[in-house]
Design a protein around this nucleic acid. Structure first.
Lengths: 372, 372
DNA sequence: TTGTATGCGTTATCAG
DNA sequence: CTGATAACGCATACAA
């Protein structure tokens, strides 16, 4: 049943270009009518008795007389004509393709974003190229630089832009490749930014915990440099203070990354304390999930012994037990918006802007009133 | 801090085509030297003192004299020339883009697959279009049909092809759009198929459980029509029988889908039994995760009271507690292979094939010896 | 092996 | 408002 290695991968022998050329040749020679050959703008023009330029205008500007519109509309429908996006792109000097860069495609946070982008790209008939910066277990932005240098993409979306990506951002800026950053870890000048309102989210989560009766709350963010984490902490701290609770410095820490493993690492240290906070807020859901796993491993019951909450609202948080209380980002909408902004930037280099989306509190089982 | 709705979405006002045309116009008129204008094959030819066709051949056939090769290689390097993929595609009648269809992009199973595709597509400089068949909460393959009818993609990869997708497969076949199916739920004729060896995987998991000392094992698959589930069960059953254990019909069932929710539904029924098996194998990891959540919710300890295992090897299974014992598929490699096969199919309509990849046992915390 | 000429399907320019 | 024609950058018959 298992496959013989020798026949399982016979596809590397031939270079891509050679293979594709053979394809085209075959297509042209096989005039055996097998392919009905799609109609072109020229055929439409001929059948309508007008010039191709008129058809082109009809397709774009619409600066055509009503009578002409009606006629062309009929001819196009009867022919089933669909303009060739490839030819259009060649003429316009576009690629019909945008690049999407992220640390890892596997990140569930990104997956939701991608769903939003999918929606928007479909309606534009634009394709995308994906790049995981850590695909091969080490940071490697080389391909992104190629995209920029060789203008292989019409624009760039960079998700969770870190400090280490600064060179990438600069390259895109220099090459005048339009770019949108989603939830960058740092403030970015001259770049469209789409992110959630983290300060407000921190406040909302703080309110939730205070309402439950907690009086000592810990926070463990992602990397210390992450502005997202700092804002979440800021909001949390503000809300607690407004409610008369002052966070202790010893209850505030930062993890090496936003990965679940680091949440577990933090848990190991945190749970050693003889007397500890009754609730802990992690910098994101992944950290929280890693934290809860480590806590359960040690026999700590969540939320009976300890309330835990996160940020992002990834689906995984709803599938585990206890379900994770979190501040959810409107990821799908943010993904759509990032695409829209990118397209307007591609169309015309206008002024950059930054938006903030509100997050919504999702209460599940990982938070409860503290034990008295 | 939160955004005013009126300014958050100013991007829908203009039609995509109008916007893009403005862009091109701007580019051409702004001859202010801002864009260094990438060199073309014609410029290379001129600088090398040869015909463009020679350069083209150098780029593709390589049927060029060694001296010419050396010269062109130098010129191309000095100019930093990169061929335009758009122009190449137009000439070859290709799109430079493949379509990838799946029930939901959010499926972690698919996410791993996508990572493999990413690798392969990068090296080919090909982009992709994504389609979630259930993006808008109901099955809607309309866009996939458009891709096929309008030849908007050079080929199609369909992940987890179900019975309901038969019309799609037939349309692609009729339109002669090359296609590769990954882990289809049914047997498919005339289509390249990439899947894991589910029978062997079922056996391996059965061996693991018998080795632990289990003598009564239950199985709950995905939909009854799924050939993947049936094969997994078949392998499991065979291995148990070989070890002298006969599965009871009452211990075999199927879920309405492969989603976590259905695992929880099954758990509700399963856990009602006064006397029950000491181990349960779910049709995939998602079902197993849903099952475990429901079990924990009812105070059942896994694996102390019940061992649980799944198939697929999604990352989430490693992040929960207890970690999920599973048969892992080489998803990344399968994603790569699917792309490779698609490209060979695009290059030349050869005979179809089917491969099976071996799965590997990953033992985590959700399985243990049964309580005596 | 190399050069010439033409085609791929669309848009932009400039007359009419 | 409409038509003719030159790009866009590359591939390929065919001839040399």
């Amino acid at each position: 049943m298992s496959y013989p290695k020798s026949t399982a991968f016979p596809h590397q022998a031939e270079s891509p270009s050679v293979a594709l050329r053979r394809s085209a040749r075959a297509k042209r020679s096989s005039t055996a009518g097998s392919s009905p050959k799609r109609p072109t703008i020229r055929i439409v023009a001929a059948k309508a008795g007008v010039a191709v330029s008129t058809v082109s205008r009809y397709l774009n500007d619409e600066s055509v007389s009503p009578r002409m519109k009606a006629r062309l509309s009929r001819v196009i429908a009867s022919l089933g004509f669909k303009p060739s996006r490839t030819a259009r792109n060649l003429s316009l000097g576009l690629k019909g393709c945008i690049g999407v860069v992220v640390d890892s495609i596997q990140d569930p946070w990104f997956t939701q974003l991608l769903t939003g982008m999918e929606e928007e790209l479909q309606s534009r008939d634009t394709s995308l190229m994906l790049l995981s910066l850590e695909l091969r277990d080490r940071y490697d932005p080389a391909i992104a630089f190629e995209w920029i240098d060789e203008r292989r993409v019409d624009g760039l979306i960079i998700a969770k832009c870190h400090r280490r990506d600064k060179a990438l951002v600069r390259a895109a800026l220099d090459a005048q490749v339009p770019m949108v950053a989603i939830a960058p870890d740092e403030a970015l000048a001259n770049v469209d930014v789409v992110r959630a309102d983290n300060i407000a989210a921190g406040r909302a989560l703080g309110a939730h915990l205070v309402d439950l009766g907690h009086t000592r709350v810990a926070f463990a963010g992602g990397p210390r440099v992450s502005v997202e984490s700092r804002h979440r902490l800021q909001g949390l701290r503000e809300e607690l203070r407004n409610r008369g609770i002052r966070m202790r410095e010893e209850d505030i820490s930062f993890c090496a990354s936003y990965e679940a493993e680091e949440g577990a690492v933090f848990a190991a240290a945190f749970l050693k304390q003889p007397v500890r906070p009754t609730a802990v807020v992690l910098g994101n859901d992944a950290l929280a999930i890693g934290f809860i796993r480590a806590a359960q491993q040690r026999g700590i019951e969540v939320p009976a012994n300890l309330s835990v909450a996160g940020f992002d609202g990834i689906p995984e948080g709803a599938r585990s037990w206890p379900g994770l209380t979190t501040m959810a980002q409107p990821m799908r909408e943010m993904g759509r918006d990032a695409c829209r902004r990118l397209f307007t930037a591609i169309a015309a280099a206008e002024e950059r802007a930054a938006v903030q989306y509100p997050m919504t509190l999702v209460v599940r089982e990982s938070t409860s009133a503290p034990r008295r």
